[in-house]
Design a protein around this nucleic acid. Structure first.
Lengths: 348, 348
DNA sequence: ATGAAAGCGCTAACAT
DNA sequence: ATGTTAGCGCTTTCAT
């Protein structure tokens, strides 16, 4: 087969002794065709090693069979999971996925969107940068939002985690373990996810008759370094015997754990940490990170499903929120049966 | 712009007052064109919001501008890094990347390859399943191998880590810390990477006047669970005061650490562990995992570069081995200045 | 340096 | 149920 001219549908038609269009119909299993001819054509195609040219199909039919995915960073474990789910679901739907990382950078996002438009993808799933995404009107493509930025675009299909439910899960767990005044370790203020998280906390506190204003907060980047720095600030500010932190993100939580160790404190004896995301690394930390897991892979799958609907015109423009799950590992002390914990000798 | 018919090169040509072909030449910056007309055309294109149709370009020119990447699992942090490097480099080269996960499954791999052929990608980067990859002859596409499976295909471009150098690095580090008889925790026997690793160890042992036959081995899946199980077997077999393990993979190393803790042993007091890969999770384990880092992102970049060469016909069919780097964290005891370590009270 | 015309491989009317 | 015909949007000879 090597070095041979590539087979076209014409070769298949000739081989099968039918016309081009009959061959095409058989190959795209259209209804109006006899089982007999279809068999002939399919056999001919197999014999010749024919591979359908999706470029030509796309050009003629207006459907390229490709979907775009624009996420902050494919190397981030959370987004990698999302990508995997999307990829799997797309393959099931017979589509291929073009994946791009925006690095939370407007320019990169814009360039990727352009590449996607030029590739004539049938639609795109995007976690837009900076929650503004004014390119949206000029988008000219079916799309669905993924992650925590759906709020601003009411008339748009979106898929995200159920932050409200997740925060309730976390806060109730904290309360049940006797932590009534956890620090909130938040992301950068300008991120809409930050506001969402904070609002969910406030709402639930009110429900539980806790004054949300009493909860101390600290913020930083959504990274290990960010959490590390924020934790040092927290420990400098809070001289309690036991410090509890509810981090808005697992990477920050992991960074917080490292910072605590650096000050000679151990977890969960002197410090309790609750994470949020469910990245695999949390399982390998010591102690294991108790966290709220977002359904990353399912998010990717659902996003593709919504996008397919969107493309087919049966768009419900609905917001979908998938539930999160608490994973208990060892980073949370049980303060309800505590002998009073001591401040470590080496504390600053 | 919304709802409007999509602009074609004909619209641009008309707007600029030139012919279709002149417009095409300007848009693909061909040499034979006056700076003047080019300007006119480009301005017209911008004015109309014209977006080049890559499907049509690909169809006519035979270059789709897309590259394929087939890796075991995009959700695996190592491969996610590789994908990121490839993605970045592809974007720089003006190409898009179609990413697929094979899950080490022949059938999935074959289906993905077919999708890639039908999408008319210009070439593919692949870490082939099971190191056999007999589809290779029927491939009919430029490709480059990535990872540890290049050995079998001498006449093929490939990019991988320098295992020999990496093993030397690890073994010498072990020796310098006084570990003269580490366990080798290997992957499944049928994986070619296993053989490569083992051979590198043997060769280096001979160089260092150590009898490789004295090194005990244990094997399992390249996963946390695999390493966990293997470590339990090792600890059951080896009653030494201090057990040292050189794992062929970070996930296994992390699993080994968990298993050790379950038996009441702590690291690095009773157990020393050296990993291999450099996944981020190793940094969050406690103690941090000392490991040999593969240059994952660079691997992805180089693979794209090789592929671009391959496509352009200036193929050197060379094997490229990128060097690895030792990351010292805390999982290795220094036995050279040791008070004799004790067996933990709780050991089985 | 520019234009005219042909055609890449396929699908979608429109015939029959 | 099958064949005929006309493009989809672009690049590429071949003229000029």
């Amino acid at each position: 087969m090597r070095g041979h001219r590539r087979q076209t549908i014409i070769d298949v038609a000739r081989q099968a002794g039918v016309s081009k269009s009959t061959a095409a119909r058989a190959l795209s299993d259209a209804p109006e065709i006899s089982a007999d001819t279809r068999g002939k054509v399919l056999r001919a195609a197999r014999l010749l090693g024919y591979e359908r040219n999706h470029l030509a199909v796309g050009m003629r039919s207006g459907r390229s069979g490709m979907l775009g995915l624009v996420i902050p960073d494919i190397a981030n474990p959370f987004w990698a999971e999302v990508a995997r789910g999307a990829q799997d679901r797309a393959a099931e739907a017979g589509s291929s996925l073009l994946v791009f990382s925006s690095d939370w950078d407007h320019g990169r996002e814009a360039r990727h969107l352009q590449a996607l438009r030029q590739a004539r993808v049938d639609g795109v799933i995007i976690n837009p940068v900076a929650d503004s995404f004014d390119d949206l009107d000029r988008f000219g493509l079916p799309f669905v939002l993924i992650g925590s930025s759906a709020e601003r675009f009411p008339d748009t299909s979106s898929v995200g985690s159920d932050i409200t439910q997740a925060v309730r899960l976390g806060l109730d767990h904290l309360i049940s373990k006797g932590h009534r005044r956890p620090w909130l370790m938040l992301g950068p203020r300008w991120r809409i996810a930050q506001a969402r998280f904070l609002r969910a906390v406030h709402d639930h506190c009110v429900e539980r008759d806790v004054d949300p204003a009493t909860l101390p907060t600290e913020d930083g980047e959504y990274t290990v370094a960010g959490g590390h720095a924020a934790m040092h600030r927290i420990l400098a500010a809070d001289r309690s015997a036991h410090v509890t932190v509810f981090a808005a993100n697992d990477l920050m939580a992991l960074g917080a754990g490292m910072a605590a160790r650096e000050t000679g404190r151990t977890c969960p004896e002197h410090v309790s940490i609750l994470g949020f995301d469910g990245i695999p690394a949390g399982a390998f930390a010591w102690p294991g990170l108790t966290t709220i897991e977002k359904p990353a892979r399912a998010l990717g799958r659902r996003a593709v499903e919504s996008l397919v609907d969107e493309i087919a015109g049966r768009a419900d423009h609905g917001r979908i929120y998938l539930p999160c799950r608490l994973i208990e590992r060892g980073s949370l002390a049980d303060l309800t049966r505590a002998e009073a914990p001591r401040i470590p000798a080496t504390a600053p």
